[in-house]
């Protein structure tokens, strides 16, 4: 399939990319790994007149350890994130989730910033951003701002990014001692996207759950935290009984519909099962 014709611009810097965005406005799209944008262009669901390639901007793909936080540049490719010793040792949940994305070809091209900014409601990384309590650095015409992941995903394929802004960096807090994490995903057999994906980051202190964040993807219009599960667990003794009780609240505040992927009852069930499985594994990891 052939996309509509477009002009291609290779930005040499974030400033240049922002200037091009300002110049072309709604007629422009940023191109990073291209693994979400190019398919929709080939299907002619999108026909931007201008593509601004940010994949050539030096240092925009850097991964660094800042002590309290790990910084991942927006154009870091999934394969590099998953293999990064910094990511693997300091924020292992991010490495685990990233390894679930697509297949090796996709992971070799797709970028962390592209996936997060695209905000597919069944993508893996947004669930990780929520569970990790990550922050997203957005550059715009009037400077940069930082938005918490909790405030970033606002609707179906919709984020806090404003026209003229671009995502430049993902800032991930490094979990403290006694932390454990897990990502449990039921992939759609056709697309590989999550029918449900549950990312858990928790911390156990003195046998009790000191903090827990649960990010869910796949079953809602956008990635979201499961507040009912988190509140049921927070401060309780770390036990399988507590996990079971918390997992039963996976559907709190959510509504499910019957569709080709299954009935509403089935979706509620897999939400609960996958929350429980992720919590069990995260808890076990916290002890290790």
């Amino acid at each position: 399939m052939y996309p509509s014709s477009f002009d291609y611009h290779a930005a040499g810097s974030v400033q240049e990319a922002l200037a091009l965005l300002a110049q072309y406005g709604d007629d422009a799209k940023l191109l990073a790994g291209g693994h979400s944008l190019i398919p929709v262009m080939k299907l002619r669901f999108a026909a931007p007149a201008h593509l601004i390639d940010i994949g050539r901007i030096p240092a925009l793909s850097a991964i660094s350890d800042g002590g309290a936080n790990v910084h991942v540049g927006a154009t870091a490719r999934h394969a590099d994130v998953a293999a990064s010793p910094i990511v693997r040792t300091r924020v292992p949940l991010l490495a685990e989730v990233t390894a679930h994305i697509g297949d090796p070809l996709i992971r070799n091209m797709g970028t962390i910033g592209g996936s997060i900014a695209h905000a597919d409601p069944a993508a893996d990384l947004p669930a990780a951003m929520l569970a990790l309590g990550a922050s997203l650095v957005l550059a715009g015409p009037s400077g940069t701002r930082t938005v918490a992941a909790d405030d970033f995903f606002t609707d179906v394929f919709t984020t806090a990014l404003q026209p003229g802004e671009m995502l430049t960096e993902v800032v991930v807090p490094v979990p403290g001692a006694g932390s454990g994490a897990a990502y449990e995903k039921l992939p759609d057999p056709a697309s590989g996207y999550a029918i449900v994906g549950i990312a858990v980051q928790l911390q156990v202190r003195d046998g009790a759950i000191a903090s827990v964040r649960v990010g869910m993807t796949g079953l809602g219009p956008m990635p979201m935290r499961l507040a009912g599960v988190e509140s049921a667990l927070a401060g309780t003794a770390a036990s399988t009984a507590a996990i079971a009780a918390a997992a039963a609240r996976a559907g709190d505040g959510l509504s499910f519909d019957d569709d080709v992927r299954g009935s509403a009852a089935y979706k509620l069930n897999i939400a609960r099962v996958y929350v429980r499985r992720a919590l069990v594994r995260a808890m076990a990891a916290s002890a290790g």
């Binding site: 039921l186 992927r261 299954g262 009935s263 009852a265 089935y266 069930n269 897999i270």
Partner: peptide, 10 residues
């Protein structure tokens, strides 16, 4: 499919 099997079981 999982959905079909689960629904039948339950």
């Amino acid at each position: 499919t999982p959905a079909r099997i689960w629904s039948a079981i339950h």
